[in-house]
């Protein structure tokens, strides 16, 4: 039930402005932490701006979609939708420069597979990737917990796909529209584009679904307005109708604006810039990262050693219990 979900409580935002503000904060925080030595004026020569970060994220969303579509065995739509949600949520509070979107993207997809019960092993998963698979495995598994933590462990996602089914069933039952199945291709196309925007962070999945269905209908020169106003909302929902119409209009206009063909030259420049300014602590190719991982491992070893030595000493003291206990008897 969406209305009682964590999605509704923690991951619905008021406006695109609010989202952009949060992203700017994440960008600023990163720069303040790692860029003290650079003065204000030159700061953005070195670091990415919030706007550039946003472009990066958008681009990786497209890559995420393409990767999921090519994935073998084929994924269900829910996995893709959930992965999109995770990816978007992650970069609301995190900077691209801190965690490279390429890594977070695959981690999101891997986690989404698990959550949506699409059963693939990590080997099967990385078989879909190019390049060093072992490294990719390490990256995914290392980042998985980080990702979940950044999602505040709110892993249940309400996607708009089932609401679409529900609306189609309702239309078939209560509306005299001729062959509602015709709406399906248009709806799917709309939802695919919708996932490249922020609408899923602003509107409830059923609203997005309704917008998709209405959009598909208008593309076919059909009119579902009377279905929405009279049948779906009826007398009880009259007061809410205005809000909904506004929401649907907003969703449709946001989705219309989506630009799925990014500028390649700009991309190359951004990639280079990011490669220079990304946080080396989280870059698996950097020395610092390797050292940090080694330190973590050593720490684990240390911890293990400490624990085992403590249990050893406990055992010993337990065996010598008679010596300790003797004064009590005397």
């Amino acid at each position: 039930m969406f209305s009682t979900s964590t999605q509704c409580k923690h991951w619905m935002f008021n406006s695109e402005e609010e989202l952009n503000k949060l992203r700017e904060n994440a960008n600023l925080k990163h720069i303040q932490t790692y860029g003290r030595h650079i003065n204000e004026a030159q700061r953005y020569d070195y670091f990415l701006t919030a706007e550039e970060e946003k472009i990066m994220v958008k681009r990786y969303e497209i890559r995420l979609r393409d990767f999921c579509k090519r994935f073998q065995p084929p994924m269900t739509r829910c996995v893709i939708g959930t992965a999109f949600h995770y990816f978007k949520r992650f970069y609301i509070h995190n900077s691209v420069m801190n965690h490279h979107p390429k890594e977070i993207m695959v981690t999101c997809i891997y986690l989404a597979c698990k959550v949506e019960e699409f059963n693939v092993s990590i080997q099967q998963f990385v078989a879909n990737l190019k390049g060093d698979r072992e490294k990719a495995t390490d990256i995914i598994l290392n980042n998985e917990l980080l990702l979940m933590e950044q999602l505040s462990f709110h892993l249940a996602i309400h996607n708009p796909f089932r609401p679409v089914e529900g609306l189609l069933i309702d239309i078939k039952t209560r509306c005299s529209l001729n062959d509602p199945e015709r709406l399906r291709p248009g709806t799917e196309h709309f939802l695919e584009r919708a996932f490249l925007t922020d609408v899923v962070l602003l509107y409830s999945p059923s609203q997005v679904a309704l917008a998709a269905v209405l959009h598909a209908a208008s593309k076919l020169q059909e009119n579902l307005d009377s279905y929405v106003t009279d049948t779906l909302f009826g007398v009880d929902g009259r007061g809410k109708l205005e809000e909904l119409i506004e929401a649907v209009r907003a969703i449709r206009s946001i989705v219309k604006m989506v630009d799925a063909t990014p500028d390649r030259n700009q991309q190359k420049l951004l990639d280079k810039k990011l490669e220079r300014c990304r946080n080396p602590e989280n870059n698996p190719d950097s020395e610092i990262y390797k050292k940090r991982m080694q330190a973590l491992l050593d720490e684990d070893d240390d911890l293990y050693q400490r624990i085992s030595s403590r249990t050893d000493s406990l055992d010993n003291s337990a065996l010598n219990m008679s010596v300790c206990a003797s004064p009590e008897v005397a």
Partner: peptide, 21 residues
């Protein structure tokens, strides 16, 4: 299954964004 789809389709339709802070 039908009920679940309908539930998902209907719930949250009245969702209104919180007043901007």
């Amino acid at each position: 299954a039908c009920m679940r789809a309908l539930q998902d389709a209907f719930s949250g339709l009245y969702h209104v964004r919180k007043a901007p802070v």
